[in-house]
Design a binder for these strands. Structure first.
Lengths: 367, 367
DNA sequence: GGCTCATACTGTAACGTTACAGTTGGATTG
DNA sequence: CAATCCAACTGTAACGTTACAGTATGAGCC
């Protein structure tokens, strides 16, 4: 640029007074501020910061330098109003659940993945007695986010249908069976249940029960299929345990588990679909005088470190919710960027079953 | 309004074509849409929806009716750009913590309180190795929220000082000791620890240990003072337990607890500052062959329903994080509204210590 | 009949950004 | 040497909202 023009600009701006210069004392710097300081136009500054091809290299450097010096950050409301891009991702959470720390792990994972991105994370709560469709509709209708993450997925999920129909970017924690391709992340509950049965069979267990999720949810089928498959392969017997599921309040799980264990022939092995459920089961069996690791074995998911504190031996596989959060965040970001949904589907296959916790009977006696 | 003027307006608008009418097919209705439909000016519609005093009752009714019919929702970006009000509350969370479900309970409480308000909840993560000041500065500097909720409060907390100095609305989960009045909600850890000691003394326990939080945090002092006070009142002895605190990873708490319990004279009672910590303690003492409720008693906080699943008898008081979330949300909202901070300080005093869990030895033997 | 006054409305400008359609000045071309 | 082209910049308008400073209308008053 010519020196002359620059000086002209400076003079013109100065005559306008500080009010219009965008340099008002404590206020946040805007594009105008930088435009004034560099003697460039607002548009040029905007484009320079975006590395537009029609801006000179020198100019870009200068603009970026000043932008950094004054601590310029684009005004989100301005961008949002102009472009419609919110730079927000909404995570829909059921706020009634009191299931251990797994929600905070998902949140941590999502935050982690979003940390170096322009995205803010907003929480959109659903309460169990409301239509799970409400928050989704709200976000889409008010365009309060660029993408959305939902969980508790059903095989035929109205929310997924709605989001696909509206072309709204999203990712689900769990799969559907609707013949619609969409971004998802899931834990392989089929593999989990099958491996669990094998592990129990290897420990000599023959009468197995499954604490499954609500039949309403997709992964109910995955888990019960895996369980059934394991039973056939190991020739073990199933003890129906259909009055309890992992999504119930933990006290109710325990109550149902007590009934199960007080049957004439109680199970000698249980596959437990959630870490929290395992607490209820262990509590119940202790109350019945059954000894974990001796009379009965339990396989569960090590969804929290708390599971490691189980005193008797417990069998567990690791379900990493933090990782799930990261995967989900990645998937929505890519979905927003317009990626093919079939490339945004990840299945986390659990590692083999391990024993956690300490030995069933203390070797060491206190002083 | 005169019929004539209305007709004029309609005619004028119609000649403008649909493009400018704000009635473009699937698009979100704006003030312009309603202005067109009612034949009023955009300003009038805006003011009518706000119940401004200079708008006629008839007009208000008509505008509101149409607004409801077309499903009008103010565009947040527009409002934010114009007024500076974000209608967002930021909750700062440490995303390293893996402490049980208490984070999700706080989130639920906050969401609950914000449900019928215009506020959205955004999560601003801090990682433990970053300066806790960073997210606070970010929110204030970029004005990305109208108010902020922080936790893990220290007696002399730089964040609180910063927020007060900048006149930025906030609420803290925990108190400070800086001689600065600000909105807070806190659990009475002094009362908790004192009551806990009394409960242990009543059960005949004489050698007591305290699993306290990091000394850095304000409530460390509250808890240890309450503990000390209880000791004096009950004439019990303290067994120092200073290498562990409730904020450590649960495995480390357990490791430290093992050392404590393997001392020549182990404690016969422990006051445990967190529900998660209790899992580690119980795990440790079982590993040492100590029997909970017989050789030793533990008092903890029933911060999660999981604590109820403790097989042996455990003493616990209820710490309601959901309620804490609600209180904090209320406090920020009031702080934003400009309320006197001294009226926004609530202390949750725990109820008396209760036994939870089932009896120590099973009365019932399985079949 | 002119005056004031209150009521009920109005248009304009601005918040900060970006898409778009220019404009300028110099170099390259036929 | 005029025509063309390109690089590097520019201003204007618009997104949806609200603050502000009006304006038109009719009533009430002297």
């Amino acid at each position: 640029m010519s020196a002359r023009r620059k000086v002209d600009m400076m003079a013109k701006q100065e005559s306008d007074g500080t009010q219009r210069s965008g340099l008002a004392d404590g206020a946040r710097p805007t594009l105008k501020t930088i435009a004034f300081m560099t003697g460039l136009g607002v548009t040029t500054v905007s484009r320079a910061l975006k590395d537009a091809p029609d801006i000179g290299e020198e100019t870009k450097k200068r603009v970026k330098l000043i932008a950094r010096q004054v601590g310029y950050r684009p005004n989100r409301a301005g961008v949002r109003l102009r472009t419609g891009k919110t730079n927000v991702i909404s995570l829909v959470l059921n706020t009634d659940e009191q299931l251990m720390g797994f929600i905070s792990d998902i949140i941590s994972g999502v935050s982690e993945e979003l940390a170096d991105s322009p995205y803010h994370l907003i929480l959109t709560p659903v309460s169990g007695h409301n239509d799970p469709m409400d928050p989704v509709r709200y976000v889409v209708e008010t365009q309060s986010a660029d993408g959305i993450i939902i969980s508790q997925i059903e095989p035929n999920d109205a929310r997924v249908r709605y989001l696909v129909e509206h072309g709204f970017p999203f990712a689900t924690h769990g799969r559907t069976h609707m013949g619609i391709e969409h971004p998802w992340h899931d834990f392989d509950n089929h593999a989990f249940a099958r491996q669990a049965v094998h592990a129990l069979a290897k420990a000599g267990r023959r009468r197995l029960a499954l604490l499954a999720p609500t039949p309403r949810l997709t992964y109910y089928r995955h888990m019960s299929d895996g369980f059934a498959e394991g039973l056939i392969e190991t020739d073990a017997a199933e003890l129906p345990f259909r009055d309890a599921w992992v999504d119930m309040p933990i006290e109710e799980i325990k109550a149902q588990a007590l009934k199960l264990m007080r049957r004439p022939t109680p199970p000698d092995g249980i596959v437990c679909g959630s870490g929290a459920g395992a607490f209820a089961l262990v509590s119940a069996l202790e109350e019945c005088g059954l000894r974990l690791g001796e009379d009965i074995d339990i396989v569960t998911k090590q969804s929290s470190r708390l599971v490691q504190m189980f005193r008797p031996r417990l069998l567990a596989v690791n379900e990493d919710f933090r990782r799930a959060g990261r995967e989900l965040a990645k998937a929505v970001k890519a979905s927003i960027a317009g990626a093919d949904p079939t490339t945004l589907q990840t299945l986390y296959v659990p590692e083999t079953v391990e024993r956690v916790g300490q030995p069933p009977r203390p070797e060491f006696q206190g002083p």
